[in-house]
Design a protein around this nucleic acid. Sequence first.
DNA 1: CTCATTTGACCCAG
DNA 2: CTGGGTCAAATGAG
Length: 291
Amino acid sequence: MKHNDSNRYLPKSSVCDDLPHACNHRLVLKEISKEQSLVMQLRAIVLPALEMNQNSELVSQMFQSILDCSSMVIAELLHCQSDAPAVDMLVDDKETVQRISNDVIEDSARPQHHHQNKRRRVAESMSFDTPVPHYDGHQWRKYGQKQINGAKYPRSYYRCTYGKEQGCKATKTVQQYDPVTNTASDHSIMYKAIYYGRHTCNFNGNDSGISIPKDNGETNTHRNHDLVHYNNNQCSIVSVTCSHPDDHQTFLDGNVVHDTYGDIIPRNINMDWQLDTIESVQLDFDNWDWR
DNA sequence: CTCATTTGACCCAG
DNA sequence: CTGGGTCAAATGAG
């Protein structure tokens, strides 16, 4: 029985009822993830432009509602996709991100060498294909970059900025897809961002991962390309964890500012985002189905 | 001076 | 032995 295209993704009483096969789940999840990514990009462009507009709050809420809807659908799909592990959809590169099954060794039971295991624990990982790998609402500090065999672009290694002071063990790697193998239909620059470990850092009682300095007026200590500014209690992020000069440089082209991550930044807009924008961009780590 | 990034060296799992 | 992940000294920005 052929589905009408316009109804293909419409939920009935439950998304699951309409999607009996795992392959359908996968397709829908992929499409919704793409949609979320696009909405986030769009919001990053639109909201700064509306900063002084009276409708900016309404627009912000509408963006949030759209993202909430798709998040809900994803959650529902993941929930009923019991036969196909949820992580598989996101950790699709099993060559490099293998699942370690139930016999994960607890940290406390591991032998404590001078250096920790060089091979990363891949059990708690999730990956995203995204054109904006750095807008995830968390603050990261780059600690390494490596040219990976067979890959055109280097892989960058990040750990949570607050890893030292709060013992947060969250790390992530970001690698740009080779344009030859990039399957994105619009040929936009895509990155694979792989997240390892939960964020255990916490700031001022909020779970956003955004730190708001108590002195409420000065620029945060982050510098270089990892800019987080605060002005009168308003948090704005310029660009998060962009370190390599070849990786991320802005340049003017007509009426828009490009950066080499592939993001297009409207000219004359300094990419200031309000706090609620950043919070909503943050990935929902807490509700993720960690394996 | 402080702190983030860069990058070569090192470690170690496979 | 190879290659991915991490360390840490050097460097540079603010």
